[in-house]
Amino acid sequence: MSSAPTTLPNNNAAGSAGGATPSPTFSPLYQQIKALITRSLQSGEWRPGELIPSEVELATRFKVSQGTVRKAIDELSAENLVVRRQGKGTFVATHHEARAQFRFLRLKPDVGEPLYPDNTIIDAKRLRAPADIARQLDIKTGDSVVFLKRMQSFDGAPTILEELWLPGTIFKGLSVERVLQYKGPMYALLETEFGTQMIRAVENIKAVVADQVTADLLQLPLNTPLLSVTRVSFTYGDKPVEVRRSYYVTNNHHYRNELN
Rank of each mutant, 00 (worst) to 15 (best):
S144R: 07
F104V: 10
F26W: 01
D143V: 01
I122V: 14
A215W: 02
V208S: 01
A210N: 02
W165R: 03
T230I: 13
P22M: 03
T25N: 02
L81R: 14
T120R: 15
G44F: 11
T90N: 05
V232T: 15
A14T: 12
Y236K: 04
S23Q: 08
L115Q: 15
L107V: 13
I73E: 01
Q86E: 14
F171W: 02
L259H: 07
Y236V: 05
D211L: 00
N251F: 06
G156K: 07
D216Q: 09
Q66D: 13
M151L: 14
T7F: 06
R99E: 15
V176D: 09
S54C: 11
Q42D: 13
G44Y: 08
E79I: 01
S77A: 14
N80H: 13
R39Y: 10
I170V: 15
L164E: 03
G112N: 09
S3C: 03
L105P: 00
P158S: 08
L115Y: 05
P117I: 10
H96P: 03
V82W: 10
K172E: 15
D211N: 13
E193G: 01
R231V: 06
P225N: 12
V145C: 03
L137H: 07
V83L: 13
F104I: 09
A78P: 01
N257C: 08
K88N: 05
G168L: 02
Y255D: 06
